[in-house]
Amino acid sequence: MPNLSLLKNHVPGAVWKSVVVIVLLCAPFTAFSQYWQAGGFLGISNYSGDLTQKRVDMRYTRYAVGLHVKRDINRYLTLRAGLTYGRIAGADSTNTDTFLLRRNLSFRSPVFEAQVGVEINFLDLDEKKITPYIHGGVGFYSFYPTTKDANGNTVKLRPLSTEGQGMSQYPTRKPYNIRQFSIPFGAGVKVLLRDNLVAGFEIGLRKTFTDYLDDVSLTYVDRNSLLRSRGRQAVDYAFRGDEVNGTHVSRSTYPPDGTTRGSDKYKDWYMFSGFTLSYRFGGGSGGYNHWKRQKASQCPRFF
């Protein structure tokens, strides 16, 4: 190996500084060949909250679709951004708990999410052809809970203030924001189908900061106050136990003010899981050898 200190003594200072700058700039180019990826997601969406007796009720699985772009920084680190649309739902009527059956609430909601984050790959995909990975980031999403009436018509729940949101009698209960941040995270596996085609399967959880994905969180408010402030429809959809007409549950009346309607101990969650397919491009010449070393001519030229 050449003696750098001796070499420095025989090279003019200006030239030496230029050499150092070029080496530092060329290092990342000679080490890696970065790739872009563009692709789609097709899978399912689920929800966890006050209308699920279990952590997740798979009977209310709905579809989810999405688009994404990614940037491979090196063999093990990938930046990602994406848009996903899905639907979530839940209903008391399919639970077995007596309290939930008597409450008889239901909801459905679209969820549109934009998210950015990182993926950490455990193996070199080009070498092993497969790698597990974990991912995390930040998301911004919108939702809008609705339900169906006895005739199948859609009823928007948020304007009804079913738990007294925005009513002067309950000043601490503000209308919930239908656009919020979430924390997406999860794990998956990628498979290299071809040099420029990557397939995968991913499970993604979304931690939210709201308990109103399903329009249920706290206690019932006074029936008469709700009737005066929001009308008959608000009373009808704050408590639907009087619609139950079966042998397992008797007909019920509207609960007194302060009776438990939901629980704000835990926030609601939503999940996107499914398959991904990505086309990767860029990264220099010479085919799609993902981390092929670049030629020296690809380094910046200054003189």
Results as ranks from 00 to 15, higher is better:
23 V>A: 14
99 F>I: 05
77 L>I: 08
88 I>Q: 07
101 L>P: 01
51 L>W: 03
58 M>A: 13
91 A>T: 10
25 L>E: 13
128 K>P: 05
27 A>Q: 11
29 F>T: 04
64 A>E: 11
106 S>Y: 07
100 L>P: 11
80 R>P: 00
93 S>V: 14
72 D>L: 09
17 K>R: 12
18 S>I: 07
130 I>Y: 15
47 Y>P: 01
125 L>Y: 05
26 C>V: 02
37 Q>Y: 09
118 V>Q: 00
45 S>Q: 01
101 L>A: 03
45 S>K: 00
71 R>I: 00
58 M>E: 12
18 S>Q: 13
75 R>Y: 10
133 Y>A: 02
88 I>Y: 08
109 S>G: 03
47 Y>Q: 10
72 D>R: 09
76 Y>P: 01
37 Q>H: 10
16 W>E: 00
26 C>R: 09
101 L>K: 08
59 R>N: 15
95 N>A: 09
97 D>I: 08
26 C>Y: 09
30 T>Q: 15
106 S>E: 15
58 M>I: 14
17 K>M: 12
82 G>A: 08
111 V>E: 12
100 L>H: 06
103 R>V: 11
121 N>W: 05
129 K>Y: 14
130 I>H: 10
127 E>T: 14
19 V>L: 15
86 G>E: 00
41 F>G: 09
18 S>R: 12
102 R>E: 09
44 I>K: 02
16 W>H: 05
109 S>E: 03
48 S>C: 06
129 K>G: 10
33 S>M: 00
58 M>F: 14
80 R>E: 04
69 V>H: 00
56 V>K: 05
110 P>E: 01
69 V>P: 00
116 V>I: 06
86 G>C: 04
77 L>Y: 08
123 L>V: 09
52 T>D: 11
126 D>L: 00
24 L>A: 11
